[in-house]
Write a protein that binds this DNA or RNA. Structure first.
Lengths: 217, 217
DNA sequence: CGGTAGTTACTGACAAGTCAGTAAGTCGCT
DNA sequence: AGCGACTTACTGACTTGTCAGTAACTACCG
C-alpha cells in the first residue's frame, strides 16, 4: 500500500547499483575498514562509518562479514595477503638485504601515513585484555623476530650468539615501531634517518667481535 | 561612602573549601581511572568502571571532575607529579647517568606491567585525530628527546653533531617504547636485556669518532 | 557551646546518543 | 524462480552527561 512510499522521488544515493562481483565489493569494504580502524582504532571505529565509505548501510557490511570482529580478522588477513603480493616476484630478502629492505620500508612509510597510523593504533590497542587482534599482532612480532634473528646470525657468519641476535632483533623491530609513533605525533622527527641510524647501530653492536664491523652502505 | 557595600548582594560565602577527606578521595578516583584507562584505554574504559572501584556511582565521579576528558587530563597530571615525587631528593640525572637511569627504569618496569600497559595503550590511542591525550603525549616526547639529546651531546664532549644526537635520542625513546609493546604481548622478550643492549649500541654509534667508544659499564 | 545556614558529596532517575546485531522484506541478476 | 545483495526498521546494551534531591559536614553567630 501507499504507506510504504519512501521519501518519494528519492533517486536513492545507494539505489540499485549494478551487481558487482562480490569479491571486489568485499575488498572495497575491507579497504574501507582498514582505513577506519586505522584512523579511529577498532573499538572506536564504527560499522556505520565503514559502510558509508562504500555507500551501503552498516547492516550491509554485516551481511558480508557476520560481525565486527570477523571483519577485523579479515582486514588483517587481507593486509597480509597484500603485503605478500607486493613482494611477489621479488625473492624474500634475507641476510644483509633484509636490513636494507627495512630501511627502505621506513623511507616509504613517510608517504603512507594512514597505513602507519593504522598499524600503530591497532598494535597499541592489542595489548588490552581480550583484544581480537592480540593474537594476530603477537604472531606477527614472533615471525618478524624470527626472520630478523636469522638474518643477524647469517650476516654474522654464525659467530653471533643466539641471545644477542634475539635482543638485537627485538630492538630493531622496537625502534622502528617506536619511531613511527614519535613521527606520527611530530613531523619534526626524521623517521628514515633515525631508523637507518638505529638499525646500523644495533647491527654493528650485534656483530662486534665477528670482524664485520660496518655492515650497511 | 557606599563603596563599603560588598559587590551587590554578594555576601562572602562561607564553607568554600572542600572537605578534608576530599583530596584523598579524588586521588583514589585518579588511581582507579589510571588503572581503567591503562587496561582498557581511554575510549573503551567507562566512568562506571572507574566509579565502581572506589564504591561510588559514575555521577559521583563526574561531580568531582566535571567530564570524562577532564578526568583523563587530571590522571595525566597526577602521574607526572607522582613521577616527579619519586625523583625528589635525587638530583635529576644527566650525562651518562641519564642512560643508566633509563636502563634501570626498564628493569623496574618488568614489575610494573600495569603502568607500562597504560602508557602503551594511551600512547597508541593518542595518534588518532582529536584525541584528548595527544598534546600531552606529544609534549612528553618533545621534552624527553630534548633531555636525551642534551645528555648525548654532553657525554660526547660537544663532538656529536646536533642531528646525530637527535636521531639517537629519538631512537633510544623509540626502542624503549617498542620493546615494551613486544614484552607486553610476549613474556619471552627480555625487556631489560634488549633495552640495555640497544641503548648501548645507539650511544656507541652516536659517539663514534669522539674517542669515547664504550660508554656504559 | 549549640544551632543553623550554606556548602559539599554524593545517589538514583533519566535524557540523548551510539553501538552491534537481528529480522524481514525488496530488488534484480543469473 | 530463486538466491544473493542489499535496505529499512528495530532491539537492547552501553555511553556520557544532567538534574533534583538528600545526608553529612563546616563555618560562623549568638
Amino acid at each position: 500500500m501507499d504507506d510504504a512510499v519512501p521519501p518519494a522521488a528519492a533517486p536513492q544515493r545507494r539505489a540499485r547499483q549494478p551487481r558487482r562481483a562480490t569479491t571486489e565489493r568485499r575488498a572495497e569494504i575491507l579497504r574501507a575498514a582498514a582505513h577506519t580502524f586505522g584512523s579511529k582504532g577498532y573499538k572506536n571505529g564504527s560499522l556505520a562509518e565503514v559502510a558509508d565509505q562504500v555507500g551501503i548501510t552498516h547492516a550491509g557490511v554485516l551481511h558480508h562479514f557476520g560481525s565486527k570482529e570477523a571483519l577485523l580478522v579479515e582486514v588483517l588477513e587481507y593486509r597480509d595477503k597484500e603485503d605478500v603480493r607486493d613482494l611477489e616476484g621479488q625473492h624474500i630478502p634475507d641476510g644483509i638485504e633484509l636490513f636494507q629492505h627495512l630501511v627502505r620500508t621506513a623511507r616509504m612509510n613517510v608517504d603512507r601515513r594512514g597505513i602507519v597510523q593504522g598499524y600503530t593504533v591497532l598494535t597499541g590497542e592489542s595489548v588490552t585484555e581480550d583484544h581480537p587482534a592480540r593474537d594476530w599482532v603477537t604472531n606477527r612480532f614472533t615471525i618478524l623476530r624470527g626472520e630478523i634473528t636469522a638474518a643477524i646470525v647469517e650476516v654474522g657468519g654464525g659467530d653471533v650468539p643466539q641471545d644477542v641476535a634475539e635482543c638485537a632483533a627485538s630492538a630493531i623491530i622496537g625502534v622502528m615501531d617506536g619511531l613511527q609513533v614519535q613521527w606520527l605525533l611530530d613531523d619534526g622527527v626524521d623517521l628514515p634517518a633515525a631508523t637507518q641510524f638505529a638499525i646500523e647501530a644495533i647491527l654493528t653492536a650485534a656483530l662486534l667481535g665477528t670482524g664485520r664491523p660496518h655492515p650497511l652502505t
